[in-house]
Amino acid sequence: MITSDPTASQTAGAIILHVNGEKHALTVDHRTTLLDALRERLDLTGTKKGCDHGQCGACTLLVDGRRSLSCLQLAVAAEGREITTIEGVAGQGADEGELHPVQQAFLEFDGFQCGYCTPGQICSAIAVIEEHAAGWPSAATGDVHPGAPPEPLTPEEIRERMSGNLCRCGAYTSIVRAVAHAAEAGAVRDARDEEAAA
């Protein structure tokens, strides 16, 4: 078992994780990834383990508002960061059962099949919409020059920006439709309003 006394071991430590607006105090084996800490210790199993090596995107979540892979991040190194998982993307103020616009779009456009990569796809998509709105270029952006006119979030841009999230069922076309719809429907604006209100 993991020792309950953090001072007893150089290889484990007591940390506080900030997840979905809540603080969780726990003692972790330093080897424990953020992914495993969420899943095995906090029972937040929406974040999935697809490859455990940063090669599939299933474990994507938001760290300090940016999408990250939780399988390559040590839990002990995540202390002090604000972590948002699929269980928290609808927002802390959200009513019971209320969905984030990106979640709603995935549901309506059938942007998944088996559902296993879905939490990662959704967390990634939320960030993609914000990254694009913030003017970040992508490999699909023709001209990265900062003076170049902003390019719309075309299907090609969505595909490139979402490429770190593999979907073996091959639901890509439905996912892209869902992301495009959510972007047009103002998922970003909603998210920003939330931020402003917070």
Partner: peptide
């Protein structure tokens, strides 16, 4: 290189 998630890290 890599993916948006990896580039953030």
């Amino acid at each position: 290189g890599a993916s948006g998630q990896l580039r953030n890290m």
